[in-house]
């Protein structure tokens, strides 16, 4: 690794500038830049294939960038080396453990890789796996395996933690358990870089959200800042077999979008007029406004407004 002391004096724990990564002709990461403030949860949000994981893998030392600069812990690095790895913790999106190892043995194994590490007993408690300490990995549920993976990522008491899609494929209870652990890390002052394609996860956990699409950063800010870009709009959603004639019935000041399962989404700045128009349209078209909800915009709506596509499409 070649390192040089940064001339910049920044409160950010990590800075990324113009990061580029190609896979053949595909530009998977296309000039990505961002800064990760210390002691915050910084989330890369985007659909599958947006370049989040590739970006993260470059920062974790798994891949090498074709171009761009990385500054971490105040030093500019070309490649993440052993010294940096001593100070980071990584939860990979794809990664398994030896199925015939016991939970405690896994933690002991990974603890041995670092100069300084927390005790396995301490980590078992931190990720609520004390009762499974002597269980073989192959007997754990998906949520338990993910908690073990988080325990492994935190075994060296890292300053910076990478969590790549930590709740993908987990049931709601397991997701909430992971969220609870992540919230605890934030409270203890850890800096976390999180990737997710779950809007609610990003909103719940993040201080800063960086929205990516097609390898580029298309928006960055706090969840509130991002949603406020949509102004004072309100969103009315309902399920209907068709939305023909709806834009005409509601006027020019609304945006109408159709999602999966017949979900119709109407974004409006004048909720009262829009609701009246919707009732008229329902009566005249004969379509019921099934499962109608009225809510404020969220990050999914931000993504939709920026790309014209839904996050989980």
């Amino acid at each position: 690794m070649t390192t040089e002391v940064s001339e910049m004096d920044s409160p950010a724990l990590m800075k990324v500038s113009n990061l580029v990564k190609h896979y053949g002709d595909v530009r998977a990461v296309d000039g990505v830049s961002f800064a990760v403030p210390k002691s915050e949860v910084f989330t890369l949000l985007g659909p599958n294939g947006a370049g989040k994981t590739t970006t993260l893998e470059i920062l974790e030392g798994i891949r090498e960038a074709d171009a761009g600069e990385i500054e971490i812990f105040g030093e500019r690095v070309r490649r993440v080396d052993r010294a940096v790895k001593e100070r980071i913790g990584v939860l990979l999106q794809e990664g398994n453990f030896e199925p015939y190892l016991r939970v405690r043995e896994v933690l002991s194994l990974f603890a041995s890789f670092f100069r300084s590490a927390r005790s396995p007993a301490e980590m078992l408690k931190a990720v609520a796996l004390e009762e499974k300490a002597n269980a073989l990995v192959k007997t754990l549920s998906g949520g338990q395996k993910q908690r073990l993976a988080i325990g492994v990522a935190l075994i060296n008491d890292p300053e910076l933690v990478f969590l790549d899609e930590p709740t993908t494929g987990l049931d709601p209870q397991a997701r909430r358990n992971i969220w609870s652990i992540v919230s605890g890390l934030t409270a203890s002052g850890k800096t976390i870089i999180l990737t997710t394609h779950y809007m609610d996860e990003a909103e719940t956990l993040s201080q800063t959200v960086c929205i990516m699409d097609h390898g580029k950063v298309i928006a960055e800010g706090t969840p509130r800042e991002l949603t406020s870009r949509l102004g004072q709009d309100t969103i009315v959603e309902f399920v209907a077999p068709a939305e023909a004639g709806l834009p005409a019935a509601l006027g020019d000041r609304v945006r109408v979008a159709r999602g999966e399962g017949g979900l119709v989404s109407v974004t409006t700045g004048d909720l009262v007029s829009t609701l009246a128009g919707l009732l008229d349209w329902s009566r005249s078209s004969g379509h019921a406004l099934a499962e109608m909800t009225v809510r404020q915009p969220n990050l999914e709506d931000v993504f939709l407004s920026l790309t014209g596509r839904r996050l989980r499409a």
Binding site: I88, V90, L92, G95, N96, F97, E98, F110, F113, F114
Partner: peptide
Amino acid sequence: FGRENRVLRRYWVTPLS
């Protein structure tokens, strides 16, 4: 098999050479 099952991958992000 450890490589294909993504077991070794976890070592990659640690200081283990």
